[in-house]
């Protein structure tokens, strides 16, 4: 099993290199530093000197992959690929266009993101599983039918509607919580209440319905029939046997999202003015700050790959049927 995990880790590194190459191609080859300079300097009639100066200031005045003018090792190291792309593996992201250190920004903004995403994830998971459990337990009754109808209706509503509607109703009409903003420490709770609630409501439709199908699939298995044939009560069958087995795909499926919780969520952070990584990304996109977008793409990929690794490991832990080849 150790060999299996080591192999998965090596594969993860390979994928990360692929991601790195794709982002490099997109941000330096398709979109050259000259384009970037012209974009930042604004007008179409930018002089060549201005572009050269901008590139020198921001460290983009190097060849892409191979520096023929340098000597020795710096032929490879004094290039854009090495300085801007490979450095990301050391979590050294350089500076954003307004001169701030991106790594430092990420370290400070990570925590508000987590403070929003973690409760949504944990409470949400519990809520979705309970709702799915309710529908599956009363399967083929009116509770089940209307539950599914509710799920489909809630899936069909745009996530933006939940946010705008929730802000209007809870914050503006009822004045229960502030409309937006953030405070560090324990004060954050009153700012986070509404976004967490909306985050949970927004995901309930698709998740609860998805978990319901998992429960129903498990209910139709042979071991359930055996348990019923033994004379066990339906509640015992459901909560002792079905629930336990259905939790395997549900929990291992949820593991992949855990590292991504650090990334926060783009939309609700920007709507609620929470200074997390999601709103950082949106600001960067709107300001066309390629350095920040590139860093966020890289971090997002690292976290996702980490999630895949955790999924693999959790499968081997909970499901003895997984083979290691």
């Amino acid at each position: 099993m150790t060999a299996y995990i080591v192999r998965r880790c090596l594969y993860a590194v390979l994928i990360l290199i692929g991601v790195n190459l794709i982002t490099f191609w997109l941000f330096f080859k398709v979109n050259t530093p000259d384009d970037m300079a012209r974009m930042q300097l604004g007008a179409k009639r930018v002089t060549a000197e201005a572009i050269t100066r901008w590139k020198a200031e921001h460290g983009y005045d190097k060849p892409l992959i191979f520096n023929a003018e340098a000597a020795g090792m710096s032929r490879m190291t004094d290039t854009l690929y090495f300085q801007k792309s490979l450095e990301m593996f050391r979590f050294n992201f350089g500076q954003s266009d307004d001169g701030r250190d991106i790594s430092h920004e990420i370290q400070t903004r990570m925590w508000p993101s987590l403070a929003l995403a973690l409760p949504v994830f944990l409470i949400g998971l519990a809520a979705y599983i309970s709702f799915a459990l309710l529908m599956a337990f009363f399967r083929a009754t009116y509770i089940d039918f209307w539950g599914v109808v509710l799920c489909i209706a809630m899936m069909s509503i745009s996530g933006l509607f939940y946010i705008i509607g929730g802000q209007y109703l809870v914050a503006k009409i009822w004045s229960l919580v502030p409309i937006s903003g953030y405070a560090p420490g324990i004060d954050a709770a009153k700012f986070l209440f509404l976004p967490v609630l909306i985050g949970i409501i927004g995901g309930i439709g698709s998740s609860a319905r998805w978990y319901r199908t998992i429960f129903l699939e498990e209910v139709s298995r042979d071991y359930v029939r055996t348990a019923r044939a033994k004379g066990l009560a339906e509640t015992t069958v459901f909560f002792r046997h079905v629930l336990k087995n259905a939790m395997i795909p549900i929990l291992t499926g949820a593991v992949v999202a855990i590292p991504l919780l650090f990334m926060g969520s783009l939309i609700s952070e920007s709507f609620f003015g929470i200074p997390g990584l999601g709103s950082y990304t949106i600001e960067a996109i709107q300001a066309q700050d390629f350095g920040v977008v590139r860093s966020m793409v890289f971090i997002g990929s690292v976290l996702y790959i980490l999630g895949l690794l955790l999924t693999d490991i959790s499968y081997t832990l909970v499901d003895p049927r997984v083979r290691f080849e």
């Binding site: 994928i15 990360l16 692929g18 991601v19 794709i22 982002t23 997109l26 941000f27 979109n31 991504l260 990334m263 783009l266 990304t281 996109i285 066309q288 390629f290 977008v293 590139r294 966020m296 793409v297 997002g300 990929s301 996702y304 790959i305 895949l308």
Partner: peptide, 16 residues
């Protein structure tokens, strides 16, 4: 590899 890049970010990067 393509799947590892968060969808919204890849779209944002490409559109930019």
């Amino acid at each position: 590899t393509l799947n590892s890049i968060p969808g919204v970010l890849l779209i944002a990067a490409a559109v930019l």
